[in-house]
Design a protein around this nucleic acid. Structure first.
Length: 478
RNA sequence: CGGGGCGUAGCGCAGCCUGGUUAGCGCGCCUGCCUUGGGAGCAGGAAGUCGGCGGUUCAAAUCCGCCCGCCCCGACCA
């Protein structure tokens, strides 16, 4: 029996459980610098899968990748009023280089709008130069007061798309298109159901006209913003004087969007699917989709068993995504726990008895179900199980969200519901920021978004009683 | 920045209150034997600036002071 220390149960301390899962799966480690983290190979593999898929989706929608520099002249940040107000406090500033104090301090990018729009000014002169559809994969740095692995770290990896358009309508269409790309990615690959919606002015990006978001519910029923897409209007074009000559000969300001997702998605993935045994990775995102565990022992010729295990791996048709655990110094039971902690979707057991019966035993990470499977039909059976897991994880997460989404119509009901164990509160809101602030101060709940598919419905704000024509999503958030 | 907790071997901890030879324990690690269908067993072994600096003392992991770091909880944010 095990004498290993187990993970803190989710039910006991969700936050500690989250940290335990990360450690047990070797996803990340703390760096010597406060607030920064080292993304270990297992964690980086998840990021690579995210990158690979999203990059395809970006390119399918006409975008190209480029790279803009890490260092930005401090003055650039100050060109857009709201933007500077939003980011100045959390910027790290380089003041020295080459042993001398710099003439102008350089800010380490907290986001790249300013450096990019300073370049767009050079690149755009005619309507024929538009649209510009650029994305970049990069690191950014924000001096956060409080950090949490993956969810909020001082430095993080992300992608930021920055597009320039001739018309407002085109920019809005782009903003919504990318939100939809994010929604599809989150649901089809991360298996995380999300609510696409509009942020309130209070919650929107500093410098944006409108911010759209996809909001997800974690297993502790708190909300997590998983991606954002901004319609920047002409704010940055104005700040950096970026104009183009239209067909009619007139010079006009360019319309802009930006959109991004970050390594925070890995945090979402962990908090959405994992369990008391450790990480659970949706098959489509798993670099290792299956692992063959040979049951070595005296009952069968170990050499032969190992050779068969390797054959089984080949029979899965998974290529690099299947591993054979041929370690001889640890028991099969140890290996089971080891791979479960790492979230590998399917374990393939192969022992002497299986060998006799020309079969393997598939074990699902999500349910623990053991499925004896003939060798002959392995590839197909395994593919089916992987699909089943992918769909099952999404469905389970969706069910949890539905179960914990409540319509509330009065202040008392609102206050009662928002106390632990929380959930999404679908309530009317008058649209007044003062009311929004008051609700946050008194209940800790924020408006996560105004869902895009919200049906028009007459009602009244549960706090001030003023009329409202649609429900919004309130929740406690990460 | 406030509140709480913690710093002793790679990890988790005991020892500290009541100072006293070579600072312990579990896991992990190394070697060998033996095992292997849910975290095996035996034997041997390596591994420590006790977070740092200063003070008290014949003597400090232990008492006192200052400092540093990290984690968790809150206010800001993706």
């Amino acid at each position: 029996m095990s004498r290993e220390s187990k993970l803190t149960p989710r039910s006991e301390d969700y936050n500690q459980w989250y940290l335990d899962v990360i450690q047990a799966a070797e996803l990340a480690d703390y760096s010597p610098v406060k607030g920064c983290m080292v993304i270990r190979p297992n964690g980086y593999a998840l990021w690579e899968m995210i990158q690979r898929q999203l990059d395809e989706m970006f390119k399918d929608t006409g975008h190209v990748n480029a790279y803009f520099p890490l260092l930005i002249p401090e003055s650039f940040l100050q060109k857009e009023a709201e933007h500077v107000e939003g980011f100045a406090p959390e910027c790290a500033v380089v003041t020295h280089g080459g042993g001398h104090e710099l003439e102008e301090p350089l800010v380490i990018r907290p986001t790249s709008e300013t450096i990019i729009w300073s370049m767009y000014r050079k690149w755009i002169s005619s309507h024929r130069d538009l649209p510009i559809l650029i994305n970049q994969w990069a690191n950014v740095l924000r001096w956060e007061m409080r950090t949490r692995l993956f969810l909020r770290t001082t430095e993080f990896l992300w992608q930021e798309g920055h597009t320039a358009h001739a018309t407002e309508a085109e920019a809005e269409a782009e903003t919504l298109q990318m939100l939809e790309v994010y929604r599809r990615f989150a649901e089809d690959y991360l298996a995380i159901p999300v609510i696409p919606g509009l942020k309130t002015d209070r919650e929107k990006f500093a410098g944006a006209v409108r911010t759209y978001t996809i909001e997800a519910m974690m297993q502790d029923r708190r909300a997590l913003q998983a991606g954002t897409s901004h319609n920047l209007g002409q704010n940055f074009a104005r700040a950096f004087d970026v104009t183009f000559q239209a067909e009619d000969g007139e010079r006009r300001l360019v319309w802009a969007t930006s959109w991004g997702v970050s390594t925070r998605l890995i945090g979402a993935l962990i908090m959405c699917h994992s369990d008391d045994k450790g990480l659970v990775v949706p098959p489509r995102l798993a670099a290792t989709k299956a692992v063959v565990v040979p049951i070595l022992g005296k009952k069968a010729d170990p050499e032969r068993l190992l050779a068969e295990a390797r054959k089984v791996a080949a029979e899965t048709g998974l290529g690099r995504a299947v591993k054979v655990d041929d370690r001889e110094n640890v028991s099969p039971g140890w290996k089971y726990h080891d791979w479960e902690q790492r979230g590998v979707p399917v374990r393939i057991e192969l022992g002497p008895r299986d060998l006799e019966q020309d079969q393997v035993v598939l074990v699902r990470r999500d349910s623990g179900e053991k499925i004896p499977t003939p060798r002959a039909g392995l590839e197909r059976a395994l593919a089916d199980q992987l699909e089943g897991i992918q769909a099952g994880l999404f469905e389970r997460a969706r069910a949890l969200r539905e179960e914990h989404s409540y319509k509330v119509d009065d202040e008392e009901g609102f206050r009662a519901r928002i106390e632990a164990p929380d959930g999404f509160l679908l309530a009317h809101w008058c649209g007044d920021e003062a009311c929004e602030i008051r609700i946050q101060e008194e209940t800790k709940a924020t408006i996560r978004c105004i869902p895009l598919d919200a049906e028009p419905e007459q009602g009244s704000c549960p706090f001030c009683g003023k009329p409202s024509d649609r429900r919004v999503v309130f929740a406690k958030a990460y």
